[in-house]
Design a protein around this nucleic acid. Structure first.
Lengths: 186, 186
DNA sequence: CTACTAACGCAAATTAATTTGCATTAAGGA
DNA sequence: TCCTTAATGCAAATTAATTTGCGTTAGTAG
């Protein structure tokens, strides 16, 4: 009755072409001005395949945004918490300030369910960042450094970067540095 | 050639009906699952009128979200900065944690242009909040109190509330209180 | 190498959004 | 009170997205 999936060859190639097409279209025109037919054309696949596999353009766009934003990147390991958080904060700021990164981020934010509905997906969206922070803090404690909590780093380093990036206030790497100084100095 | 607009009677009634319809639909199903035809039906107007007046559902939704979020509300005036910021923070938190407020906020975020494009509209979106904060801080200085800067309140009170509300982390009124304590104590 | 069938493609059909043409209503100035 | 016309409505036409039916390709197990 129930067959096996076939993740080899063509399925993987189709997904790669589709994800590249979505990423390119998001960068060009923002995330909310894209139709399945646009993606199909750019990717060179049949729109039917997209509808059958993802069902809805928002599902597809969200999947691509999550993958782009949460892609594993090597964590900084500079020998001090200040150095680690500074490097990390600068890379987050740089990512958010690109047109593509900004659009992915807003796609993520926009596509999530509103408050009062399923919290699981919404909470999960920050999990990768929380884990990165926890890893850096654990290393610092191993070096004997006094650390803020993961929540404090989320609230007072990541959140200001995110909100400034969303609303157009300057959120450059110097700003990330100042946030780290303020956080470490407590 | 160019006639005058006629903002009286019917035009105003239509706008009110439309805005109520949009607000209700956003609260029910999130902002990105609404069509002009849905709004027209709920408001009891012709879809033609919506297309002629607003052109595009995202323009309309954004206009409603901005009006709802930025509606003038009386600022707290409790006699101390701690009291003012606590009351203000709590009301921001409460607003963001309602299904409607959350959806309006995400409509605002989602509809803005990405980084690298026109910054004016994006920067303007935080202006009302900045003004509220500046007013409270000015009152505090008049009382002889030492105050943080407007930017510090934006970054370390509003931003954590916004990001937690977006991503489903607990951002209740107690959390707002703790942020204020941390801000004031520096 | 063969058989089964998941994944994909094509074309047509269906659904829905959007636009257009023309008519009606009502705001506002003379 | 009358006239002009902005704003709105209705119905049809157009455009575009989405779904359906059926065929083809290719992944995978035996």
């Amino acid at each position: 009755m129930t067959g096996k999936t076939r993740p080899g060859g063509r399925t993987a190639r189709t997904k790669e072409a589709v994800f590249e097409a979505v990423a390119a279209l998001i960068a060009e025109r923002g995330y909310d001005n894209i139709a399945m037919t646009d993606i199909a054309e750019r990717a060179g696949v049949a729109a039917t395949s997209l509808y059958r596999r993802w069902g809805d353009v928002r599902v597809l766009v969200l999947e691509v945004a999550v993958e782009e934003l949460m892609r594993e990147r090597p964590l900084p390991d500079t020998g001090s918490l200040r150095g680690d958080l500074s490097a990390w904060g600068r890379s987050v700021a740089a990512g958010l300030n690109s047109r593509e990164g900004s659009s992915f981020f807003r796609a993520l934010v926009a596509t999530m369910m509103p408050a009062g509905t399923d919290e699981t997906a919404r909470s999960a969206a920050l999990t990768p960042r929380s884990k990165q922070i926890s890893t850096m803090l654990a290393r610092a404690r191993e070096r004997g450094e006094k650390t803020p909590s993961t929540a404090e780093v989320l609230d007072h380093l990541l959140s200001p970067l995110y909100v400034r990036a969303l609303f157009g206030a300057p959120a450059d790497e110097a700003f990330a540095e100042r946030l780290v100084e303020r956080l470490i100095a407590r």
